[in-house]
């Protein structure tokens, strides 16, 4: 582990903290001895434009706030593409991942997105879907909760990332969850995704090239194991109604 500061930029904390998502970045920074969290609002120039950033994080947004975020981020779409290709770590939870695709289709409206990754989202505001989620990525089980009006389709949405063991995938016909490309990790799992998945935190720490010891490691793993045990019980109902 080097002494160099690890810089994590949280994009638009006002807009993209719908379900306590910002705790992901806060927790991650708490696991790193020399981390710096940079919060960038939608009236500021992002730090990634002018300095070396190790990781970019975005969380869930309301649909209106997605468009406010896009309105600001479009100016930097080429830079964002470049950073993804340069293996900078990205984590996008909830519908934040949709911004990195080609467009969002909302009935007859087509909302242009960053076009950094080859997929698109289809939104249906009259059809909210909820599920508990259990999946497998590499040798780790992934747990969480999904609640969404939109799903991803297109080339990257067809890749096998997190294998769905319970709940639904990146779209209702998919058995895979997440949009992963190089070090870009996008998942519809909501809110405190990292707090729910300590082994995924270790993966991110590994990508950042730092020690993989977690903050409150025993507590976070105990809570994870308990949740995993419950989700793996036979007969677990993963799908939930919206009313």
């Amino acid at each position: 582990m080097g002494a160099e500061t690890i810089k994590i930029e949280v994009l638009y904390p006002e807009l993209s903290n719908l379900y306590g998502d910002y705790y992901n970045a806060k927790y991650l920074a708490g696991c790193i001895d020399n981390a710096e969290l940079i919060y960038t609002s939608n009236d500021e120039e992002p730090a990634f434009v002018s300095q070396k950033i190790d990781m970019i994080y975005m969380g869930s947004m309301s649909e209106r706030n997605q468009e406010f975020a896009l309105g600001h981020l479009m100016k930097y779409k080429d830079k964002l593409k470049e950073l993804i290709e340069q293996d900078v770590v990205f984590l996008a939870t909830g519908n934040a991942l949709e911004l990195f695709g080609n467009y969002i289709q909302d009935e007859d409206r087509k909302i242009p997105c960053l076009g950094a990754l080859d997929f698109h989202a289809v939104r249906q505001m009259n059809d909210r879907r909820n599920c508990f989620f259990l999946g497998k990525y590499k040798d780790m089980k992934i747990v969480g909760h999904k609640g969404q009006f939109s799903f991803c389709h297109g080339t990257l949405a067809k890749q096998k990332n997190i294998k769905v063991l319970g709940g639904f995938g990146i779209n209702l016909n998919s058995k895979s969850e997440g949009i992963f490309y190089k070090n870009f990790y996008g998942t519809y799992i909501l809110g405190p995704f990292l707090l729910l998945n300590p082994y995924f935190v270790k993966l991110i720490l590994n990508k950042l090239g730092v020690d993989e010891t977690l903050k409150f490691e025993k507590e976070i793993i105990d809570a994870y194991n308990d949740r995993l045990e419950r989700l793996e019980q036979p007969g677990t109902e993963f799908l939930m109604g919206a009313e």
Partner: peptide, 13 residues
Amino acid sequence: DKSIETITWLYES
């Protein structure tokens, strides 16, 4: 004993 529930609210509260 089988219950599971969403805990996102813990990190919003």
